[in-house]
Design a protein around this nucleic acid. Sequence first.
RNA 1: UCCUCGGUAGCUCAAUGGUAGAGCAUGCGGCUGUUAACCGCAGGGUUGUAAGUUCGAGUCUUACCCGGGGAGCCA
Length: 500
Amino acid sequence: MVDVYIEELDRHVGDEVTLKGWLYNSREGGKIIFLILRDGTGICQCVVTPESVSAQGWENAKSLTQESSFTVTGTVRADERAPGGYEMDVTALDVVAIAEEYPITPKEHGIEFLADRRHLWIRSRRQVAILRIRHSIIRAIRNFFDDRGFVLFDAPVLTPNAVEGTSTLFETEYFKLGKAYLTQSGQLYGEAGAMALGKIYVFGPTFRAEESKTRRHLTEFWMVEPEMAWFDLDDDMKLAEDFIAHIVQTVLKERKAELAELGRDISVLENIVPPFPRVSYDEAVEMLHSDRTAEMVDEKQAAAEKERTELLAELESNAAQYNQVKQWQRKKFDAREIEINNRVAELDELLRNLPKWKESARNFEHGGDLGGSDETLLTWYFDRPVIVHRYPAGVKAFYMKRDPEDESKALAMDVLAPEGYGEIVGGSQREDNLDFLLERIEEHNLPQDVFEWFLDLRRYGSVPHSGFGLGVERTVAWICGIDHVRETIPFPRLIHRNRP
RNA sequence: UCCUCGGUAGCUCAAUGGUAGAGCAUGCGGCUGUUAACCGCAGGGUUGUAAGUUCGAGUCUUACCCGGGGAGCCA
């Protein structure tokens, strides 16, 4: 008898094997029980009848509650009807632990309820799929850099100062040395690493104490930050697009089943190959001002209104039939009503926002930073991530190098993911001239003394260098096609939540 | 910090100012191929908190608490 995982069942058709796991769901039909077993690698329907198992085995099967742990032995059989494609005809079943009444039922739940039970929620198929994709993404990130001669370079989490002097950071007392802060970026340390090792990447958790309450923000998130000596902005952009394409193509290769579980449209991801379109800030502003952008907003508006009307018509028609149909049909109607109400609420919000987006794009003032809606509109032009480069220096960090061809611009670039996911990468060529950097520090009213070590990097053999940061959770959300980063990390830290 | 939406059964949601409901979950009964199984029965409520208007408040008003979405900022 051999113990196997559900993901290995395809190699054991016809064999008698043992599965170990938890009861995901069950259906009982008098003299037959269907047990849906999950083991972390997948789910498998196990069929039990009084003839197939001992009297004790039959009693065991009947006693199982949702999430009870148990082991089953039986013969593996391919079955078209089964989720996952394989079923087991059970010959023996042992209970390990009967679960108390499990709070997360196979029906719908609200986000607060689920977040309070995140330690259990991660057992759900959807969450398992997301976390497995996250794992593949992180492995793809490390492989990409490792295969190209980058050295992993860990930056400290506790730092004595704010990197960019702008964001609000988590603060703590550090013995007799005064305040210390949780890092908001490993970048400055990464620059030191690049001067020592050539090409490095910092990979770790990052903290922001801003009160951002949106689907794109966590207070604790993971960021990977490559930093390369002898790279200019063009090299930086080329690396970023190869990097992102590599991540997406790796997930497509390794996690087809999980993407299917999430209902992700694969064809959208298959487009993600280099080269990515490059748009300068100046061009981006022109695009925002263009008639084409206004038209696209109008088209979206019309499509949203049409969908809204159709959904409401369906709701009305269902309500009219409600009293004449069978009970099972009523349940379908009830479920559909919730679905429609949610979608209509989404559409209503979109319809409220679109006119504002249109206005804001039309009236965008050259020199300002791109807002969230402006970024979204820009991504509508392309079927893959778009790189926006050469932003006004005023809206970017002090350490970014000015464009020699236009001193008002910084050699910065952001990569915006399609489908409204927005900024997943931010990077730049760094200022390598000591005097210019000193000027910037003064302009930004930053304390020079805490940056002395950083200035040393320019004093002792300064070279052109560049780097960028990629937000892991935003990347996971985009690739998975899910609408909130809180589902992309095992235990999300949000402004109103730090437990479990 | 600001804007906006919400809080009704364990869960997801209904309920013109007029007797608080449904589905799921739970318990019991039925059913040998179910796919969020189905059919029947049962138990289950201080409508977020406090005050106010009213003959009467889940519903209207005010304040507060908690949460969702968004702005700013950013990955």
